[in-house]
Each structure stands twice: as C-alpha cells, then as structure tokens.
C-alpha cells in the first residue's frame, strides 16, 4: 500500500520535476562542468583546464572592470531605490484627494518594459535635443552627453534602474505600512513620541521584514537587470557601463567563448547566493517577524 502511494506521489511531482531538472538544475550543473573545460574550436576540441578559466578572470581587465562596475551599480541602485520607495510609500499611504492618481504615477515605471523605459531615457539623455539637454540649454549650460561619456555612462544607467525599481518596491512598503496599527501611532502620540522618533523606533522595525525582502530583491535585480544596457550603452563607451551579466552575454554569445562565459556565470551565481545569504543572516537579529 505504502509503495503505491509513493508511486502516485512521484507521478504527481514528475511533470514539475522534469521541467525543473531540464531547465534549471541540468544547465546549472552543466555550467559548472563547462567552466572547468575550454571552449571547443574547429581545430581544437574541448579540454580540461581545471580552474584555468577562473585564473584567466584575474588577468582579464574587462572582467575586473565589470566587477567594479557591478559593485558600484549595486551600491548606487539598491539603497537609493529602497529609500526612494519608502519615501514615496510614506507620501501616499494615507488617503488624501488624488492619492490613487499619485500612487499610479509612482507605479507606472514598473509596468513599462525595461526596454521601453531605456528608450524613454535615451531620449532624456540625447545630446542636443534630449529633455535634460533642453533644460540645460534653457539655463545656459553647454550640451552634455550623459549616456555617451565614460565618466557618466554607468550613472546614467543606474538612474534608469532606480527610476524603474522604486515604484515597484513602493508597493511592498505601502502594504507594510498599512499593517502598522493606527492605535500604535495614537499610543505613541500620548506617550510624547515625535513623528520622527515613531518612524525610527516603531515603523521602521515593524516593516523590517519587508525591507529585507525588498533589499534582497534589489540586490538580485542589480545583477540581473541589464536590458537597458543593451539599448542604451551596450556596456560602453570603453566598458564604462560594462556589468557582469552583460559581459557574460558578450563573452558567450558575441565571442562564443562559452566555457569562459560559464565560469563567469558561476561567479555571478556565487556572488548572488552570498549576498542573499548574508542579508538574511545579518538582518535576522534585527528583523521582527510577527
């Protein structure tokens, strides 16, 4: 009897299992395997190199540049988009006239495809006739090419990410803020707690689980969302906006060095896992789950 139930159980999970293994686990293992071999060329078959691909990274200036860029990009986009999201949520979490329109305005960037967003911002940044340049010219400043200059390209890309992500994260903070009971605010008002103190000492700790969730997502997205890089800068100029994932794409599908791309992918996954784990671990003590 037991055996039969087990067979049923396996049959029930089988479809999901097959897809999960085929499209997630096998490729992951394969990437790991590929990363210790060389890419097969017409005249030279694939050969085992151990950690060779990983050693190559340390001498690869573009990889190092991509790592620095990705770190900088995450450091810029994660805190800024979270802070902005929280600020927007605080602005619109109490009802007032036109609050629905305001919420929607904040949320709109989220529903747009990132490629479309990138095109909008490409127009903003366009030298000469772009929105920003028109404003600059109105005030008598010289024309500037934000997305096309090595020293500003990465920031231009980061701004787009923040613009797109803040509205999405706002929704989570909005939901979290609604769960903070109004009587706590009233009790605090009677106990002589200022609005700022209440926010810092009560609201923030109570929405910590949401903040953690959002920040994990923000970190993952910082490494994962590169669609706008394709549209806006293609990693340039001079690799100024080269991000790790975009570099993986270039290596794998432009130069067809799949083995090296596999090794890069392993590094990316490692970074993401460590970042996620670290966040849960660090925040665990400070997060109050109800």
């Amino acid at each position: 009897m037991m055996r039969r139930e087990w067979i049923y159980a396996w049959l029930l999970v089988l479809p999901a299992f097959v897809f999960l293994i085929t499209f997630t686990h096998l490729p992951a293992v394969e990437a790991l395997v590929n990363s210790v071999w060389t890419t097969a060329k017409g005249r030279r078959p694939s050969m085992f190199v151990g950690l060779g691909n990983y050693q190559k990274m340390l001498q690869d200036p573009i990889f190092i540049k991509a790592m620095i860029n990705s770190g900088l990009y995450a450091a810029l986009t994660v805190p800024t988009s979270i802070a902005l999201a929280l600020a927007m949520a605080l602005l619109v979490h109490r009802p007032f006239k036109g609050v629905a329109a305001m919420r929607m305005a904040y949320f709109t960037p989220t529903v747009l495809p990132l490629v479309a967003v990138a095109n909008i911002w490409l127009f903003f940044y366009a030298p000469g006739f772009g929105l920003i340049d028109q404003i600059r010219q109105f005030f008598g400043f010289a024309s500037a090419n934000y997305a096309g200059q090595p020293d500003t390209a990465l920031y231009s890309v980061a701004v787009v990410t923040i613009w797109k992500e803040a509205g999405f994260f706002m929704i989570f903070f909005l939901a979290a803020l609604q769960t903070v009971p109004e009587t706590l605010r009233e009790a605090a008002a009677i106990e002589g707690c200022s609005k700022w103190t209440f926010f810092r000492r009560v609201t923030l700790p109570l929405i910590m689980p949401t903040t953690l969730f959002v920040s994990v997502n923000a970190v993952i997205n910082a490494f994962r969302l590169v669609d706008h890089v394709f549209v806006m800068t293609k990693g340039g100029p001079d690799n100024a906006s080269m991000l790790l994932l975009y570099y993986i794409f270039e290596t794998g599908f432009r130069y067809w060095d799949t083995a090296y791309a596999a090794a890069l992918t392993v590094v990316l996954i490692l970074i993401l896992s460590l970042a996620g784990l670290g966040q849960f671990y660090a925040a665990d003590k400070r997060v109050h789950y109800k």
Binding site: E186, I190, P205, H288
Partner: peptide
Amino acid sequence: AMVFQNYALYPH
C-alpha cells in the same frame, strides 16, 4: 495616559 482596546503594545 490611555489604555487601548487592542492594548497598542509595540510588538518589537
């Protein structure tokens, strides 16, 4: 000082 129906204690 006020005592609330749901006590309004700070859960954290």
